[in-house]
Nucleic acid binder design. Structure first.
Lengths: 336, 336
DNA sequence: TTGTACGCGTTATCAT
DNA sequence: ATGATAACGCGTACAA
């Protein structure tokens, strides 16, 4: 906090009262043109900028919205969706003249501090990425009743709305198409099974395979990484030399798997067909390019932000609480 | 701002004065054990949390530090260093109990809002990533005199310190080693020439090549992207069929270039040697793995944060203003 | 050790 | 249309 020039000095300079200066500052009506000019000149002259802490205290709002990224940092870097969600969120918030404040939480300590931050009234609303069940942050949000939206994880909370995609259905669709290319022995490189999104993709896979489903052909891995694809693909080939199809839980995973196949001289899509998820930059970089599920990450961010903005502007509660599943789209390229 | 419980109510509940409650809150000495217990019990009972805006107003500080990312969003996603800088920064800030607040600026409007944010006293300090010469944000920082550090761009400002790497020297080193493998006709895929970092890498390249330098063999591109590598490499081969070495301005660029060479059946490193920059995840994913420059991104972030924290804690100005160039390291793999 | 009272910089509610 | 003046919630000298 560095400024020392207050409304007082502006008022003195302009030969007016603080009240009038404040009114000019907030663009309120009932100020004469002459007063307005005088104030504006004075502001410029003395170099005044308003102290937002004081303003916050008086108005009880901050004009800022938190975007809480609730993932280990290393993961954040890998996830191709987070960046796009961020872009969408910032665009909407920026338009509505809210400052987006990104808060990363990667430790208990971070988490505690973020809760304090929320309680402290530094933000008027919050958007939470991949909130976990029963974590202190979402609990604090609900308790405080601050306008919020969750992205990527259905809420156990009843006062917070959720924006996401239908992972299960998306998985079903792409696996169905994969099977339609004549694959008979299909495996899955599954990731993030500790989250709903991961579980749902697996569920979709299982459902479509039906009779053909073989649990031994599901290789789980904690993270959606290239390395998971490499290791998983090797294991899969070990378990099923007659494999002819693979559903990778993300494009990065698929890329890792593809490289293994390359090295072994296995032709894609001739011998093995492979599909990914995300339609991230990996998809077009792979050789051959990946068939995958397009996830509308930026739109996810926009919706979430819009939700919060609406709540902030006092929209109807019922309107705001309804959760949304955004549609995904299959992008069919050459890998299957 | 959602809380309504004030110190007042805690004081009433505990049968003590607000002053005492405040003292307990701030862990000050001179409070009896009994008073402390009573206050703590009362706090729990009435569910009190302090209003940070009011606290900010009174103490004139916020306990938050801004990390300002001054790049187009799309670029942020591509840059492998930003994430690591962020990790380092957050680690140090978190240890020192400051809340890191990430602010993205991608438009004039964003920029204006961030300036307001800084002026509003929402943060006690700031770290700026790739600040541009004479932009309003760094100017505001200097004008306000708030503790700050710049990462990745030497300051034109005299009151802000800078943490970076010596791009020119790093380029010189790796190009020297590239030449030592016997290359005679070497091109560069240059990027970001509107920034110091880009210019410096080019300067290093030019210096080492000396007599052999051929301006026609420098292909510039705005962004450090895979696509830049693809397009640049194609152009380079067109211009110099006898090419036997390439310095790519980043690993992502090198990856694009490598794929072009692959497709044309040009052997790496046998026919053409190629080196990158960053030692990002690209480097090990490429076939063959990239020889490259390791950039200590996380350390960069740590240093910058430490600078700001020191300033906040009232370190000597001279100590704090000294700028730092962190050493880079060559990682030699198989691509050259 | 504890309580009192004023200040932090704005906004908002009154009169005028 | 403008000017006093009371909140807003907390920290902190100073008094007790």
């Amino acid at each position: 906090m560095a400024r020392r020039v207050t409304i007082h000095e502006v008022a003195a300079e302009a030969q007016l009262s603080r009240g009038t200066v404040s009114r000019v500052l907030n663009g309120e009506p009932y100020v004469s043109a002459s007063a307005r000019e005088a104030v504006e000149a004075a502001i410029k002259k003395v170099g005044y900028v308003r102290n937002t802490a004081a303003r916050s205290l008086a108005t009880r709002q901050s004009n800022a919205v938190a975007l809480i990224v609730h993932e280990p940092h290393s993961l954040v870097l890998e996830d191709p969706n987070i960046g796009n969600i961020l872009i969408g969120t910032n665009a909407v918030l920026s338009d509505a003249d809210y400052q987006m404040v990104t808060l990363m939480v990667d430790s208990q300590r971070d988490s505690d501090r973020v809760v304090d931050y929320l309680r402290g009234g530094f933000v008027d609303g919050a958007i939470v990425l991949s909130a976990r069940t029963g974590d202190p942050i979402t609990e604090a949000i609900e308790e405080l009743g601050i306008p919020a939206a969750l992205v990527g994880h259905p809420p156990d909370l009843h006062h917070v709305s959720y924006i996401g995609i239908d992972n299960r259905r998306a998985a079903e669709e792409i696996v169905t198409r994969l099977l339609a290319t004549g694959r008979r022995r299909v495996g899955m490189l599954a990731c993030g099974l500790d989250r709903d999104s991961g579980q749902d993709r697996l569920a979709g896979f299982t459902a479509v395979l039906g009779e053909r489903f073989d649990p031994a052909l599901v290789i789980p891995h904690a993270f959606y990484s290239y390395d998971a694809g490499v290791a998983g693909m090797e294991e899969l080939l070990r378990r099923a030399p007659d494999l002819d199809g693979v559903f990778a839980a993300s494009d990065a995973v698929a890329a890792g798997a593809l490289d293994v196949l390359h090295r072994r001289g296995i032709a894609v899509p001739e011998q093995i067909g492979i599909v990914g998820f995300d339609d991230s930059s990996w998809a077009t970089r792979c050789v051959p390019p990946l068939s995958t599920v397009r996830q509308p990450a930026e739109t996810l961010g926009r919706y979430a932000a819009q939700r919060v903005v609406n709540q902030l502007r006092g929209a109807d509660d019922d309107d705001v609480l309804e959760s949304v599943m955004l549609p995904t789209e299959i992008v069919w390229r050459e890998s299957a």
